[in-house]
């Protein structure tokens, strides 16, 4: 489904003039972006340009200093308890996986449904098994994270986020810490998720993924979005110098599909 079709869908997330400072350093300087239902929005750009910061502000792991972020029509709450409810509706996948090392894969995935959603143990474990099957790791349910490869750990992390049945999935450089061989298995899971219609915001350096799976790409530089548009535009016919520079530095010379 093209962006144009999705644009008529609800705006799941709206960023308006979002600013974030760390002391004197301005990590985000007025970011405007819309994420529609069912869309895959990819955030690309050099390190330190603010992409991850924006993601972390989205589920309020960091607080913004200016502008506003709307989720499903309402501004992000300030009260911790209401914020927690909002976080339940967003799933986040971290670059360093952050699986809980003292729990098996199954319990990692079942933990939040039990603790946060107060699901009963059997119910939570059933759901966990289903999620693990979805990411192709049914046979690793009783393994501890230390016994899993990076790609497997990240897939469990995705299953863990999915178990909460979120309305949007936030991916913070999900494959940056992986060996090249295992990147593929994680990207496949992400593509399958996108095909099912999950709303996704993905910070990534995997340009091929952004080109193929993304509906909308935003290019970041020094805390601002310098260009945003459909992948076709960004990758084949960028309109700004910064975008062209960035892509050529990555060795991107047009689509190789």
């Amino acid at each position: 489904m093209s962006r144009r079709a999705k644009e008529n869908g609800a705006k799941i997330i709206r960023y308006r003039g979002v600013t974030k400072r760390y002391g004197a350093f301005e990590a985000l300087s007025g970011v405007d972006l819309d994420v529609h239902a069912g869309e895959v929005v990819c955030l690309i750009g050099p390190s330190g340009s603010g992409k991850s910061t924006l993601l972390r502000c989205t589920n309020a792991l960091e607080t913004i200093d200016g502008g506003e972020i709307e989720f499903e029509g309402a501004q992000l709450p300030r009260v911790e308890r209401t914020l927690r409810e909002v976080r339940r509706r967003m799933g986040m996948v971290f670059q360093s996986f952050e699986l809980f090392p003292h729990l098996t894969a199954l319990h990692n995935v079942a933990e939040a449904p039990r603790t946060v959603l107060k699901a009963r143990r059997a119910e939570a474990e059933d759901r966990a098994r289903a999620m693990l099957a979805k990411v192709g790791l049914s046979d690793k349910a009783s393994n501890y994270p230390a016994a899993l490869s990076g790609g497997q750990q990240q897939r469990v992390a995705i299953a863990r986020a999915l178990a909460m049945e979120p309305d949007v999935m936030l991916f913070d450089e999900p494959t940056s810490a992986l060996d090249p061989e295992t990147i593929g298995e994680v990207l496949s899971v992400m593509k399958a998720l996108a095909d099912e219609g999950m709303t996704m915001v993905v910070v990534t350096h995997e340009m091929t993924f952004a080109r193929r799976v993304g509906d909308w790409v935003a290019v970041f530089d020094a805390g601002r979005i310098v260009e945003q548009g459909p992948p076709r535009q960004i990758f084949d016919a960028p309109t700004t110098e910064r975008t062209r520079d960035f892509l050529s530095h990555l060795g991107w010379h047009g689509a190789t599909l």
Binding site: R84, F94, E98, V116, A161, M164
Partner: peptide, 12 residues
């Protein structure tokens, strides 16, 4: 990151 991952899942 462990604390953040847990809170991102909605835990207090």
């Amino acid at each position: 990151g462990q604390l953040e991952a847990a809170m991102a899942l909605g835990m207090s």
